[in-house]
Amino acid sequence: MAVDKEELKEKIVEFATKKSKFKSKMYIKDLYKADPDAKPREVKNAANELVREGRLEFFSSGSTTMYGVPGFGKSEAQQFEGEE
């Protein structure tokens, strides 16, 4: 049975926000845990919709793409531009 997408999106945001306090970037696999009943493809589609809505954001590790919640973790500017 397919999971309700809006419900799933809320679960993902809630899960990611909670996790972000410890580790601000997560893999798509980590997001599966937001709702164990959802299929990988459903989680992926929901997460990518959240990115379009600006509620999640992408981060690149060079070879992998990760998800983050805007506002958590080091910003691009903190890490690489002004620094110090």
Partner: peptide
């Protein structure tokens, strides 16, 4: 002296 300022330790560990 810089690590906490510019990166998240758990992410570096996981990498």
């Amino acid at each position: 002296d810089r690590i906490t300022g510019v990166c998240e330790v758990p992410l570096a560990i996981a990498a």
